[in-house]
């Protein structure tokens, strides 16, 4: 599964980092650093939470979707 960032929407709010810090980090200047684009199975839960928690709806997931 792959994470997509809509860079036009992202404002570096950081909710994603607070939920999935291995995947997301906000840099000192407010820009988002994506530590990995491919999401492992054990990261999926927290990354889904991060997607739902983004106030600018800048995050989405591609790839197989679990039922």
């Amino acid at each position: 599964m792959r994470i997509n960032v809509d860079w036009d929407r992202c404002t570096g709010m950081g909710m994603c980092e607070s939920l999935a810090p291995d995947v997301f980090e906000v840099d000192d200047d407010g820009s988002l650093i994506l530590h990995t684009e491919e999401i492992s199975a054990d990261q999926e839960g927290e990354v889904r939470e991060a997607v739902a928690a983004c106030p600018t709806e800048a995050l989405s997931l591609d790839g197989p979707i679990d039922a």
Binding site: G12, G14, M15, E17, S18, P21, E25, V26, D27, D28, D29, G30
Partner: peptide, 13 residues
């Protein structure tokens, strides 16, 4: 300081 509060959010939670 946009890089800071979310790191503390994890500690609070």
């Amino acid at each position: 300081m946009p890089a800071e509060v979310m790191k503390y959010r994890r500690l609070i939670g």
